[in-house]
Amino acid sequence: MTLMHKFLATAAALSLSAGAAAAEPALIFDLGGKFDKSFNEAAFTGAKRWADETGGTFREIELQSEAQREQALRRFAENGNDPIIMTGFAFGNVLGEVAPDYPDTKFAIIDMVVDAPNVRSVVFNEHEGSYLVGMMAAMASESDTVGFIGGMDIPLIRKFACGYVQGVKAVKPDATVIQNMTGTTPAAWNDPVKGSELTKSQISQGADVIYAAAGGTGVGVLQTAADEGILSIGVDSNQNYMHPGKILTSMTKRVDNAVYDAMEAGADIETGIYVMGVGNEGVGYAMDEFNADLVSADMQATVDEAAAKIGSGELMVHDYMSDNACPVE
């Protein structure tokens, strides 16, 4: 009798755990790996916050090869994980092919639009956040020359640059913006030495505030700017703490919120294009104790006013990727 009980209990426990596993969300990191101090790590932070707050669990995988993209998607879908979240535009092609095979599973992709009925495409209005930090850069600059250092030269980063220039010109129409891209290959995301050299070059041309939208390369930009005594602007996460009093602000892109929201919604996640902009706090600028002395109340008020206007739709920031062109230089 006791043996029978034990069996039944085990069977019940098994079916319970199977039931729980079915609702588990899954998160797939791109080849950069989970702890890249930037994009993937932000996604992990969001997932961890969700797990800590709800006590839920999630599956995760760091990819090792290109062929694993499709494999991970299919295996998680077949395992019943829902929703399945992936970071990065490189998943776009694969997801477009896989999603129709699993109509009952929901997918969420960050930084890319995939047109399928069961996919949430999370895109960020980086140009809006860049516009705000551009305004701030212009106000903080004394030489009326500011800089921009991008990572890999792709339309997405030009979108950052274009929004930034628009913000600068909105405050000081005559200001000069020096723009540099680190490279044309994925290696440009992780080249702090070159970031440092570009920073020195821009400083010699008169720049006194430099915005780095370059992933790991930005670490070199922020470091050199701090060493040379000029201001810099961080990107993606709040990087103000890295050089207290030397970083004007950071353009925050809340990838963690995007992942958190998707996990929170669970299997009932709304699909379609999900835009995270200034209006819904998907992008913005970071204020904390590390940059409080650098940003005056006036500056903050001006930027907040612009943010409110962007949120309400009164002010339109041009999106480079809408027509692959930028109205200002």
Binding site: R59, I61, E62, Q64, S65, Q68, Q71, A72, R75
Partner: peptide, 12 residues
């Protein structure tokens, strides 16, 4: 190895 990465906590 891919299966290990998918279903265990063994880091890559």
């Amino acid at each position: 190895g891919a299966e290990l990465a998918l279903w265990t906590t063994i880091p890559r």
